[in-house]
């Protein structure tokens, strides 16, 4: 198989896309926001419950392609216990990773590092970042749907 493809579709990503974690709704009281990628029609809804300024629980519904589903799944696993500022900082590092602005070793990304292969596929960056943009809106309590375009 093509090496870049292998980097993109790492086992962890395929596995999360097939068995996503936290793929459910959260009961109120929780913030939620809707994200939409008009390019491919994918939709994701992110739920987040903040407690004492930290992420107490986070979950998602929807998504679509393997990259966007796995991204949402790994994101929800990573975020618990973080403050909004820490989540924002992690998003910045993740964004740098998938756009090729930073290498996978540049930051302490933990499991998120598996998305490093996305940087070779500019058409897929939005698949990986949609859930993060939507998370940011959910934390902020933003009503309007987030779109990638």
């Amino acid at each position: 198989m093509n090496e870049e493809l292998r980097d993109l579709y790492q086992d962890v990503i395929i596995e999360h896309s097939k068995r996503p974690r936290n793929n459910r709704a959260l009961e109120a009281p929780a913030n939620s926001a809707q994200g939409y990628n008009p390019l491919c029609g994918d939709q994701v809804k992110i739920y987040v419950r903040m407690d004492d300024g930290k992420v107490a629980d986070v979950a998602f519904e929807g998504a679509g392609c393997a990259i966007s589903t796995a991204s949402a799944s790994v994101m929800t696993e990573t975020l618990k216990g973080m403050s909004a500022d820490e989540a924002e900082a992690l998003f910045t590092s993740f964004h740098d990773l998938v756009t090729g602005a930073a290498g996978p070793d540049d930051e302490d990304l933990g499991k998120l590092a598996v998305f490093g292969g996305v940087s070779e596929f500019p058409a897929r960056v939005k698949c990986a970042t949609l859930c993060w943009h939507t998370l940011r809106a959910a934390i902020a309590g933003q009503e309007d749907p987030v779109t990638t375009e």
């Binding site: 994918d42 589903t69 897929r124």
Partner: peptide
Amino acid sequence: GIHPHDVGTI
């Protein structure tokens, strides 16, 4: 089980 967007990339 495979999303068209992934199919298109491969």
